[in-house]
Each structure stands twice: as C-alpha cells, then as structure tokens.
Nucleic acid binder design. Sequence first.
DNA 1: AACGTTGCCTACAACGTTGTAGAAATCAGG
DNA 2: CCTGATTTCTACAACGTTGTAGGCAACGTT
Lengths: 335, 335
Amino acid sequence: MRHRLKDVAERAGVSVKTVSNVVNGYVHVRPDTRARVEEAIAELNYRPNLSARHLRKGRTGVIALAVPELDIPYFAELARHVVTAAADFGWTVLIDQTGGGREQERVVASGITDHLIDGLIFSPLALTAEDLAGLDNRPMVLLGERVDHGPADHVVIDNVGAAREITSHLIGLGRRRIAAIGSQRTPEGASARLRLTGYADALRAAGLDYDEALVASASAWHRADGAAAMRGLLTSGVRPDAVFCFNDTLALGALRALHEAGLRVPEDVAVVGFDDIEDGRFSIPTLTTVAPDKAQIARLAVELLAERLDGDPTAAARELSAPYRLELRESTQTP
Amino acid sequence: MRHRLKDVAERAGVSVKTVSNVVNGYVHVRPDTRARVEEAIAELNYRPNLSARHLRKGRTGVIALAVPELDIPYFAELARHVVTAAADFGWTVLIDQTGGGREQERVVASGITDHLIDGLIFSPLALTAEDLAGLDNRPMVLLGERVDHGPADHVVIDNVGAAREITSHLIGLGRRRIAAIGSQRTPEGASARLRLTGYADALRAAGLDYDEALVASASAWHRADGAAAMRGLLTSGVRPDAVFCFNDTLALGALRALHEAGLRVPEDVAVVGFDDIEDGRFSIPTLTTVAPDKAQIARLAVELLAERLDGDPTAAARELSAPYRLELRESTQTP
DNA sequence: AACGTTGCCTACAACGTTGTAGAAATCAGG
DNA sequence: CCTGATTTCTACAACGTTGTAGGCAACGTT
C-alpha cells in the first residue's frame, strides 16, 4: 500500500500543503506541527512520488549517462565514478548503453527518455556535430574527444599530448620501430585520429620515420581486436620493438598475441596502452599506460551539468580538460 | 521549446485525447485524422512526457538494476545483458550502485527511487531475509544466491553444483592439494559459503581431506584480494598444486601472485575461477572457469519481472535456475 | 422508417505534487 | 489597545497525460 500527501495530511490533521512544506523543509512551520507531520510520515512510511513532483517542478533528480558499452572496463569504471560524483548532488544516474552506433546515439541524445531526466552525460563514438546541432539544447555534457563546434559542454583529456608523451617514453627507452594499434578511418574514430596524431608527432620530433606498415587498424577496441592486429603485424614481418595500443584492452589482446608468438614483453617488444583500467595493473606483465583521471572527469562532468541546470541554459558551451599521467609498469621496464 | 499534446492537438485541429489515442495506437481513428495528427507530431517533434504518463498510468517503462559495483567485470557484463533483455520489453534500465553495504542495499530495495521505476532487479551482497521481509512487495527479482525464505522472485545458478564440478575437474587432472580462495565468514558471503560447500563436497567424494590451511579468505573479491590471498598461501608453505578461486578476478590476482613467485601455471599450479569474465579469455594463461549463462540470467530476470508486473502481485515467489558450463582453458591444461 | 450497433471523436476528471494568493493567528512597537 | 508586520497555515490551480462517459454519424437489420 502506497501513501500520498493526502493520507499523511489526514493523519496529522493538517492540510496537504503543510505536509508538502514539511517534506521540503519550508521554514515557517511550527515545531509541534512539524513533529506531528513527521510522525505521520514515519508511521505511514510515506515517500514522495517523484513523477508527480517532476511534473510539477520540472526536475526529477535523475541524470542519464550514455556510454557505448558497459562491459568495456573503461566505461564501467567511468560509470562508477559518475554515479559517485552524482550522488554528491543528490542525483540518481540512469545508465544507457548506446552500442556506439550513430543512429542509436542520436536517439539517446535527442532523448527517448527525455522527460524523465534532468540532464545527460554522454560519451559518444559516432555522433557528429551536425547530429548535435539538430537537437534541443537540453543540458548535456559530452565526454571524450571534441565533437567540433558542437553546441554542448564537454570534458576532454589532451589525447594528442598524452599519445605524444607515451610514444616519446618508448623512444626514450631506445625503441625505434614503434607500432601503433587501433587506428580507424571511420568518422567514429575521433579518439583514434587524435592518438595517431600524437604518435606521429612524437616520431617526427625524434627524427623517426612514420611507417604506414607499422600502423594497424582496429574496427573495435576490444581484446580480440588487439590480438588480431598484433598477429597481423607479426606475420607481416615488420618486426616492431614496441607497440602503442590506443587503449588498454587492445594492449591486453596484443600481450596475448605476443605471448602466443613466443615473444617476450618488454624484452623483445615493449607494450603500452591507454586508459589505465584495473586489468592492466594485474596482467602479466603489468601494463604501462596513460592514466586519465577518471574521477576528475566524472566530477567535472557532473559539475558542468549542475551549472547548466541551475544557470543560463543558453550560455556558451564550455570545454574543461581533465589531467592524465603516465603509469610506468612492467610492460616497458627494461630489465 | 518543448511541446505538449495540446500543441499537437491545436495544430492538427483535433482534441487532445485524439492525439493521445494516435500516440498510443488506439484503433478507432480515421486514417486521414491519424495522418494529420502524425504530421503535426513530426512537425513539432513532440515527445510524450513520461512523468505525466507515469502519474496517470502508474508505469514508467523504467526498471532499475542494482549491483554492488559496476567496475567488477561480472556485474558490468551482467548489466549489459539486462539492458539488452529489457530493451525487448521496451524498458529502459536505471542502474544503481549499492557498494554492497547492507544499509545502502536496504535503501535501494526499499526504493529511494520508488516511484520512478516499475520494478527492480537486484543483486544483493549483504541483504538479509529480514531486511527483505520488512519491505513493500514491490516487483523485485533477486539475482545470485538465495536469500533464504525471501519473499521475492529470484534467479540463481547452482553454486554448489558448479563448485563441485570444477573442483572435481581439478581432481580428475591428478591434483591433490587443491586450495580455495575467497572464503568469507561474514553474512554477506552467501555465494562464498555455497562455493565452499561444493568444493568440500568434491574433495569428500574423491576421498581427499578438507584442509583448513588450504582455504584462504578474501574480504572482497577483487584482483588485489586474490593476489594477497595467493601470496599468503605460498608463504604459509602449504604448497598447493591447484587453486579454486571463487571468482575470476580473484583468479587473475592469483595468477599474478603465482607469476611473481616464479611458479608456472598450470604446470606447477592449476588455477580455476568462476564467472567467465572477458579478461579470463585473454589472460596469460587463459583461465579455466565456470561460465554462468549471463544472457539467460538476465533474460529470466526480466521475464520474471514482466510477469510480476502484469500478473498477480501477491502470487508466490518463484525461483528460476540458469544454466552454467565449464570453460576449460590453459590454466588447467596439462601440457 | 425506426432501430440498435459500431466507429470516431470530445469533454471532463483524475493521477500526486507544489506555487500562488490569501486568511487567520501571533507578534512588535507605539 | 490599536496598527502593521510577520508567522503559520489553507484552498485552489496547474503540471501533461489517459480513463471514462458520452455524443454524433454512418452503418446494417428488422
């Protein structure tokens, strides 16, 4: 049995609005009235109906987080941080899985769940700037690489800089034939493009040639794709002495393929990844990686959303950058 | 700018209710009227307000999934399957992270988000039967080990049987000093208790002694706990020739600790896990494990919830069992 | 031709909440 | 003890939707 304000009001002998005032912490309520109401609330185990409240107030206290796939560890870890950060604002998080397809992402962004949520934190893969431009300017924060000239707030990390830095680290270790795994030619591959740019920058800065043959593409960024790409590199005969994988799951797949080929990491081939997922801290060998500050990304995203909700909805879009650092582990340590 | 039924109605020159009828697929609407309304809907990009609909109908089309931690791969993979299964019913999934604490779980179960969701799929760690008994009988499906005599539907797998089977597999390989990692004495450890029972059953059936010294506890089931427990076993001098870890992340941690100790897997020590997370298919060595049918678990849970929502809410609680199978991989393969 | 039936549509009320307006009670200051 | 301000509370309307009841045509049946 569910109770309403009306039931509480009758039990406490006050008006419905007075109960509402107590629930909402309105100050001008006599202490004894408040006590009576609170007692009635407790006795009936009353809980506000959020839909009704939303209908009236226009706020649900629910935000959505949309990610391509939940069982990609990076997104799972990110989701955890977003849920935690949102809790500080009293928000519940509705998590949506887009699958990464452009059409599905458009549906999510345009808001199938429109009226149930106050705002959206969105990590798009395939969405283009035009897609975004066609939408209502609902409160939305984008995560990840910039969708150029998009009208929404976003939180990014410096993909180019991070990729340059970790590639330079490999060069600093004396590696000269550095492969890259994860390149993508599709429009979805914004992260891939930026990381490839950083990789190429670092090579150029060190006076090394950019060799097409050392760059392997991967349509998705799962372990299996990393393993397949690594096998491809090995059979093509390019003999790399290091590999920069554009994320950690690719790198874990690459480790596996190197292991199967009988090559030692890092002695024969050094391997680095990107994302700092937990797996990489326990893999054999442990994985050197770029560690974006996921907690900070989540916090910034939630804060941006909060400001957008409370502030001017038409204010100019903002871009915040979250820090990262290199995590040096066994997969690059020269013994 | 957001539009309402009223706006569409004015534009199409019909009543509000007729628009509602079109939106809801009511049959008795003349084709030309329907066309006019649909045109107006498209022009205004109308989308129903879910809160208002919920307030009126008592259904939101949103269900919640509550899991202890999202970045535990097992739960992330499960979440993915639940989202997929729910989509077939036209449901959106709100994902809640409980942290696994009893108090937080009670809050979730009692329904902070009560009125926004139609039902709850819940994977509890710490919740007790008494906690559950104190709640309204809202539509709820529990996942995982049984909370004895709980009033809610649940979907389980045969933990005891699966643990017995995989332990027997180790015995069949000729292993005799089989350790177990993941035992828990806390009331939270229902899964741990069941898996330990299966382990002990298998030993007894093979005429092997159950040796306390071979059973390592782990307060949580993360990689770090598995690594720590394995190190503990190794330094205690019990010299196991196989280890049954109560989940895959524990096993991955154990692999790591064995590697650091210079022991070979499976030659010196065979390792098995439980859950079949993706990591175990690419770890070095790949991990033999119990593979619960996660897709089936998710589908059964969603179906149970659907039946509970449509059917008699006071009907007796049901318990469904999902299948599992053994995945034999490198970590137990005798070379 | 009168009748009931069906198809199509509309008006109204209600879901549970909160903002607004204002009434009644209390207080402060002369 | 009067006046005006403040505190405390209430009645009412509205948020956007859908169920109910009912009206008016058009149809088929006697």
